[in-house]
Design a protein around this nucleic acid. Structure first.
Lengths: 245, 245
DNA sequence: CGTACGTTTGATCTTTCTCAATAATGGTGG
DNA sequence: CCACCATTATTGAGAAAGATCAAACGTACG
């Protein structure tokens, strides 16, 4: 008799947060066929133009979604944390329109797209949960566009740091005051539409102003309220209240 | 006996494009209870923080999705064209995270959220079509973030003009060479993260370079390939190939 | 221990913004 | 139909945020 592998627990948990699932739904999720894969930092999970046959669930580590422009510059569009599905989209769309790349080394569970499609067909509540996940992701894309388009460098960086602090503590509902940013300053620049040099100067300014402390990539918020104000951060767009707590 | 109102035809058609619907699905869509409402230019369809009880379908005219920052500046996130559902999102999420505002005067059909929810529950293929619509919208948000974050002003404007030309002709698959832009230069600025003054200068430059002609808000492309290249425009992100043609 | 990568610093340059004034346009009431 | 008013478009001059270039400095890790 097959042993149940609990590596997909984190996915079932996340879906359950977005839309309450029955025990049957959860069991079906846990029993999806999967292959565990270890990935190096910088490796690609998915490339623009791909037509993937498997969907990766991020179990450990961090990845980003990004796109490249014609002249080769990069815009990071989202940061994925453990539990995120990296490619629900291609269950329904043919060609991937962006890249997914590991920020750190990490582990993913790869699920055959077809098995996932069958799961959604036979368990409508799971389809619902996926739709809600997708809607929240879209909301985050919108907030990022606002951040990049209409905020100055200082506000942009502070906003990103706030979002990260907030999302890392989805469970506790209290933003982390100390965390390790899994990105270089260059990646931070690609996420905010700035240059690495300018990101560096802004980080130093935030530190000089007593808002944060830094040690390597560790960020400590000295004042959550201060950072929230500087970053014009209102967590409504994360729709945490819509989670089935 | 009730007469069937065909104003929702455009919605059924769009959903059908995204995921082939059965006749029953289409009929059910057309029979949704609805109230036709005429809206003035600039009027709000939905505000951030609202918990709407009806979902508006845009039947005629143009609207935008936008958000305001703490210091009052505005980022336009998407342009809606007739047939677009302006608020599928709030079928599943409580609070709206952005505004929807009319660009021109127009007409919407308002459908009670609950009727829509029941439709989705009883017609799973419609739920699928809505999910696909949502995924394509999310892809467009991503491309906009790239546009705003990593392209210079000239490229940004050209890209937006290309997208508009392309989307206006979703049927023909050949971008319109002449169309009326339903936005002021200030709105164009809010969509591209620029200022109105700079948008004006860029438009003049595109005209001087023989790429476009303008007369009021009419835009004529003198060279589609030229504009496509200047605007770094690759329509993959619109996922037109995923449409059930 | 050296090497590659990431961070920091300084100087200079460019794009885009800001502010302000003028011109054109369209919609509205008379 | 016309004159008026509000909105939008255009122009110019000057300022500023952020980019670019180049070099030096740290530090993790093989």
């Amino acid at each position: 008799m097959a042993t149940v592998d609990h590596s997909l627990e984190i996915l079932a948990h996340k879906l359950d947060l977005h839309h309450r699932l029955s025990d049957d739904d959860k069991q079906a999720t846990l029993h999806l066929p999967q292959k565990i894969r270890r990935l190096e930092a910088q490796s690609y999970v998915l490339r623009e133009g791909d037509r993937p046959e498997r969907c990766a669930i991020l179990l450990d580590g961090f990845s980003v979604r990004h796109k490249l422009t014609g002249d080769g510059s990069r815009q990071i569009l989202a940061i994925n944390v453990p539990g995120d599905a990296l490619d629900f989209q291609n269950m329904f769309l043919q060609e991937s329109d962006h890249n997914v790349q590991m920020l750190t080394r990490g582990v993913v569970a790869e699920i055959p797209m077809q098995a996932l499609q069958e799961l959604v067909l036979s368990h409508s509540e799971i389809g619902r949960a996926i739709l809600i996940t997708t809607l929240i992701e879209a909301s985050i894309f919108r907030e990022w566009a606002v951040n990049i388009g209409r905020r100055d460098a200082r506000t942009r960086i502070a906003h990103l740091l706030c979002e990260f602090a907030y999302r890392l503590s989805a469970q506790t509902m209290r933003p982390e005051e100390l965390y390790e940013l899994p990105m270089t300053q260059e990646q931070l620049a690609d996420a905010t539409g700035l240059t690495a040099v300018h990101v560096n100067r802004v980080l130093q300014a935030l530190q000089r102003d007593g808002l944060i402390e830094r040690e390597r990539r560790k960020i400590r918020f000295l004042s959550w309220e201060g950072m929230r104000d500087v970053g014009d951060f209102n967590p409504r767009y994360l729709h945490a209240r819509d989670l089935a707590a």
